[in-house]
Design a protein around this nucleic acid. Structure first.
Lengths: 256, 256
DNA sequence: TAATTTCAGTAAACGGCGTAAGCTTACGCC
DNA sequence: GGCGTAAGCTTACGCCGTTTACTGAAATTA
């Protein structure tokens, strides 16, 4: 039994070393080729414009062959989603790491801008991640993508957590938060894996408020619902960014 | 030439009286039947789950026959979009008209809640209107839908205008608005047909800010990106609504 | 080395799709 | 009664996802 593989890997993170058999190496290569081509089609024709047959044709093979790699078209798109989430996470983290650690404000600004930048440079991919969810395949365990999504969320959550560590966030008055809202905020925190001591209801309220605003802003731009009037929404984004962050006690600085 | 039709109609708004020939009546009936069934499919299978063949099958006819009514599937969906925009406009207007005219705050609150309510009761329809735009058919003159969309926007714009008439909106400091942003805000106002004297840069800034937040909030709920943590986002919506409107000088009141 | 298992990829087929071209048939008008 | 218009049909083309049964080569075992 030479070239034993995958038997004692650490977890899903990294395959420890690389005792990949030849079979497994070529399989891995085919897998990434499929995903590369699928992404190209996604970018060129949007979600819904991705088809197994066209992908297979581009690779010089037949569609049923792809079923050795993905159990369905949906499965392929889910796998792509996972990739995109980690790519987006990396983009944000990179922007974050470009600034000195103690400059929390700068890192936050930079991270949020990186989110928008990635979204605009990868509209179709963003749509897949943050656009309308499929009607039938509900949010239920689409393991890969959901896990990557959680990981992406953590990127922002830790950043926000750092902000909380420093006193500065001005929290909304306690009685502004209804019991109902409080319950839902705590449920959110739990499911998102945000269980710090610092996470008071007020802090969660601010966090979610910021996220919703950022999300709306970027969606509007990516989905092009202002296209008829604005060529780019950069200026509006910066203005809103300033507002959003000031609600979290962060001092705005213009980019560059 | 009895039963003369459509010769002297006022415009696209209403066919004046109803000198519709029998032919035209039955055609009209078929047309609404197609759209009714299409909407059912849209609701049941989402956009992308609407197919001419399935619609035709449900009506007991064949797909090519539908081309007598719509020049393509896309054309049908566009026509549906237009209908949905006017339906949504009506829902908002109805909520607005339920309160006394001088209660601007109340009418605004009621209108924004009606927007969310309609969106949640008509997820698929909302997605068609406000979800990702098709990649290839850019926003270019999709006449019917674009016109209905403009009409919908006007619903909110007039409401906001009333708010401006009364001094109360506290405008952001002038120098908070970059020249770039100013230019884009004015472009937006012009394209949206919002040309009141009251529309200072500051006012436009507040208006667009409110709209973006409302949009993001409702998108997040309709697209179910918080589903994993929150069953309903009602509480969060009310909390954000309070924030949003306070930025426009409107006093929040809880519903009912 | 020979036998055997595993598995990537194929061909054929089923049912579904949007759409174009050409034909039939009935309604509405003179 | 005759005729034009247009609604709806048939047929056809080329896409699509997915299933089934198969081939043949590589990897494993003996």
């Amino acid at each position: 039994m030479p070239n034993e593989a995958v038997s004692t890997q650490v977890s899903g993170t990294e395959p420890a070393i690389q005792p990949l058999s030849r079979r497994e190496r070529v399989r891995e290569a085919t897998l990434v080729e499929i995903k590369d081509i699928a992404r190209r089609h996604l970018v060129e024709h949007g979600p819904g414009g991705v088809s197994l047959r066209a992908i297979a044709r581009d690779m010089g093979m037949t569609a049923p062959g792809l079923y050795r790699y993905f159990s369905s078209l949906d499965d392929l798109l889910l796998s792509l989603s996972a990739d995109f989430f980690t790519e987006l996470s990396m983009a944000v983290r990179t922007a974050n790491d470009a600034l000195p650690e103690r400059d929390v404000d700068g890192r936050l600004l930079s991270s949020l801008r990186a989110f928008r930048t990635w979204a605009l440079a990868n509209r179709a991919e963003f749509t897949l991640l943050f656009g309308p969810s499929h009607p039938h395949r509900s949010c239920q365990h689409e393991s890969v993508a959901i896990e990557a999504g959680r990981h992406f969320a953590a990127t922002f959550l830790t950043l926000f957590d750092e902000l909380l560590q420093q006193h500065r966030v001005s929290l909304p008055p306690e009685d502004d938060i209804s019991p109902e809202l409080s319950r839902q905020l705590r449920a959110f925190a739990e499911h998102a894996g945000f269980t710090t001591e610092n996470a008071s209801d007020g802090a969660l309220r601010v966090l979610v408020g910021c996220w919703v605003r950022l999300y709306g802003l970027v969606c509007m731009e990516v989905f092009q619902h202002m296209e008829f009037a604005m060529d780019t929404m950069e200026a509006l984004f910066e203005a809103e960014l300033s507002d959003i962050l000031s609600s979290a006690g962060v001092e705005y600085r213009s980019p560059r």
